[in-house]
Design a protein around this nucleic acid. Structure first.
Lengths: 336, 336
DNA sequence: ATGAAAGCGCTAACAC
DNA sequence: GTGTTAGCGCTTTCAT
């Protein structure tokens, strides 16, 4: 059986309060008792029970984090940054992978938000409807990589990048490169940022005189295989000699899939077709000699998110800040 | 303030024991009381406090997991599999990324293993010395992707693949393909499986008549950039016309880096040089039209690990099983 | 079937 | 500076 604070107190001939004081440092303890207590702890191999402590002080030093898919480099990079930030203050991360499933996502969210298993919750690129965020909550909620929404929801914060602007930038580049035909492999309509990217892309093109229905759009999941399949469809009857096409895949992972599809057809990039991505994941610079993409500031998002949550948890005052909106920028490489 | 079991009991005019019984289902409760209690819960928005519950029943339904780097696809794939397995029984994963740092790894391990924050601990590809595992432990430990060691350590289990055999397989293929010159970009010497791969590779080559010092070896971290740099070094003064080389990079991620190095020099794969990897990460089939590699059974390892831990936690009897050793197989593709 | 009450291991008033 | 003790919110034995 593991030894408790009582055992230590008994062996050291002191009260449990004094034992508690030596490892919380809440009060001063005389040198004599301190050494005796330390000795007793050593002898008994005592480690404080964190569960009991949590119950008493009503704090777990744990933060929940929900991501759509931990194997997606974009998300794992964010998780890593957040982890780095919060572990400096000894917070732990409880990880949930929702598998892009809104139902699961909501389940995790609901169970975390009501119980007291964690001190705070971070949701990365959540897909739930806005109304679902209205659950009565006892812990702060931080939403990363999704535009802010305001509905009288309290103790909520947002960190995200301007995806509309990012996609706008990409369209500008494509125009500059003299492309005349455009396609967009967009993300699911349930993902706000997927829409922002598509809209930003369309906006620039419209500004340049193209009409909406001139832009082919295929909506798929943000995944390698979906990018591949979407591109295969786009390539049906495609003849680069007639009219060269630029396709904007709205995530690097689907751009990568798209590139493989093009390669499998024996077409050259960018000679026969241009491909652009979005996110600038770590691997992007190695895909097809360098994928042209938009820098989605992963590190900044993760870092900001971690710091924000830490701050919220230490001063213990509900979030009130305005959303943190980060800049996106163009990473021009070889695929366009 | 959040409502407690007491509030519910009061409102429903019953004892706390009865309230407890309705959501644990430990005892039967009459239909009348049950409905009244359910109603009271509803009214108060009651959610049981999981921390208090944990303290009482001495169980957290949480499993700690320590990986070297969550952004490495190999590890994130394992984490995902484990998560899938354990979440079926409502266990949560507390994630730690050690950053390939043995000190950090040991810290996490020590703090988890002594306290009661988690019911069990899974370590993926740990780098600690065997002696460090001898800490007095109150929870079961499961080591994944590292060969078993036996030192009278109790309540420990192992799930891993035979890396020696895998690397042996790769050497056989390279021999069959008529390569005459061999190099190995091996992992750190502190990683048992890195050594197993190098040894297995060497063993087959030795068997075929090559001597140890004919095999160039560079030891680096398992990362993209390390693979890149190692290959750059290997390429100094390299002339494919004289003698074509096969290089076995001991992880897909470093093989990928190596490939980029080769590409940057304008050499052709596999015409000018052969490159092989190890792990068969998801992306492997898309690297350079398909990276020839060894299937490291990620899914099986993750699944087995999850199930094993679940079983251990439910029957509550210390691990005693012999190590689970999985098969590796060759994935022959285009780079060799 | 239901309730009273002890107690999981700890912290923090409060008293000395 | 040190000890006593109530109590965090829950489960569970033991009466009834």
């Amino acid at each position: 059986m593991r030894s408790t604070i009582k055992d230590v107190a008994q062996l050291a001939n002191v009260s449990t309060a004094t034992v508690s004081n030596v490892h919380t440092g809440a009060k001063n303890v005389s040198e004599e008792l301190r050494t005796r207590i330390l000795w007793a702890m050593e002898v008994l191999g005592y480690e404080p029970n964190v569960v009991a402590r949590s119950l008493k002080i009503n704090k777990t030093f744990r933060i929940g984090i929900i991501v759509p898919d931990i194997t997606n480099p974009f998300f794992s990079e964010i998780v890593k940054e957040i982890d780095t930030a919060v572990s400096k203050k000894n917070y732990q991360l409880v990880l949930f992978s929702s598998d892009y499933d809104v139902k699961k996502e909501f389940q995790f969210y609901a169970s975390l938000v009501m119980g007291n298993g964690v001190d705070g919750l971070i949701m990365v690129a959540p897909r739930m409807e806005e109304s679902q965020f209205k659950l009565n909550r006892s812990i702060p909620l931080l939403v990363v990589d999704r535009p802010a929404f305001f509905d009288g929801i309290s103790d909520i914060a947002f960190v995200y990048a301007d995806n509309y602007a990012g996609a706008f930038l990409m369209a500008s580049l494509l125009l500059k490169k003299k492309y005349k035909r455009f396609a967009c492999i967009a993300g699911p309509e349930t993902v706000p940022n997927a829409n922002a990217r598509y809209e930003g892309f369309k906006a620039k093109l419209t500004e340049a005189g193209y009409s909406s229905n001139e832009i082919e759009v295929i909506r798929r999941e943000f995944s390698f295989i979906d990018g591949y399949e979407a591109m295969m469809k786009l390539l049906e009857g495609y003849d680069p000699a007639k009219q060269k096409m630029a396709v904007f895949a709205c995530s690097d992972i689907s751009a990568w899939g798209a590139i493989e599809a093009v390669n499998s057809k024996g077409l050259m990039i960018p000679e026969d077709i241009g491909i652009a991505g979005y996110d600038n994941i770590y691997f992007a610079k190695f895909i097809q000699k360098g994928l042209t993409t938009i820098e989605n500031p992963t590190k900044d998002m993760g870092g900001e998110a971690g710091e924000l949550m830490l701050e919220r948890l230490s001063n213990n005052r509900p979030f009130e800040s305005s959303p943190v909106i980060l800049e996106s920028s163009l990473k021009e490489r070889e695929t366009v």
